[in-house]
Amino acid sequence: MFEARLVQCSMLKKVLEAIKELLNEATFDCSDAGIQLQAMDNSHVSLVSLNLRSDGFDKYRCDRNLSMGINLASMTKIMKCAGNDDVLTIKAQDNADNVMFMFESQNQEKVSDYDMKLINLDQEHLGIPETDYSCIIKMPSGEFARICRDLSQFGESVVISCTKEGVKFSAAGDVGAANIKLAQTANVDKEEEAVTIEMQEPVTLTFACRYLNSFTKATALSPQVQLSMSADVPLVVEYKIGDFGHIRYYLAPKIEE
């Protein structure tokens, strides 16, 4: 038996929003520790890694490990039926071929349940090694979304260049060239408005804009985003999810030919 209760189902709506542009379907692996998901986009250039710890839920029970293959378009249809303030309960029997989503209004006067068929997915699972990154940039997630959106007008690729002075995002194409430089913030009132850089070595890497833009669909989950970079390895874009855990996106770099 699997059962997870979430007093405000808006978190799950935001998670779904953050993954459905990159993935058509995904396996949600449920265990005593929580819910995890790892899946690559169709082109195998980017990967989504989601971790929601069981202690973040208002109630959580998972007697046996359960892998739920879910069509994300179907799940989106169901989650659209929930109000942001509804209490959500997800339930599945062991070895079930369906999962139930139950939404209760705050005053408990309206209760809806939606049963969704699970699908069998044969997804590749990648082992991601622990890495000490040369540069770790923390910045407001809204600012990162804005930069990705603005630069995607100029080219298909963004060059991210990090030194101890700051981080530079550049794009170039038919229209011309664009450069956005962010310095570390000296002092800010609110922690979430800060730009901080931890640098061991300067790094410059090139990435496809459209994936970065897809990652920014997670902006609503966290006021800050963390970019981790080392030479010639995938970029990690991480958004913390309150008391639950995180969503991380990995993106393979483009190599100049």
Binding site: S46, L126, G127, Y250, A252
Partner: peptide, 14 residues
């Protein structure tokens, strides 16, 4: 996409 690496170049399937 020219020059676009795939994740399999960096991470092994487990």
């Amino acid at each position: 996409m020219s020059g676009q690496k795939k994740l399999s170049s960096f991470f092994k399937t487990v």
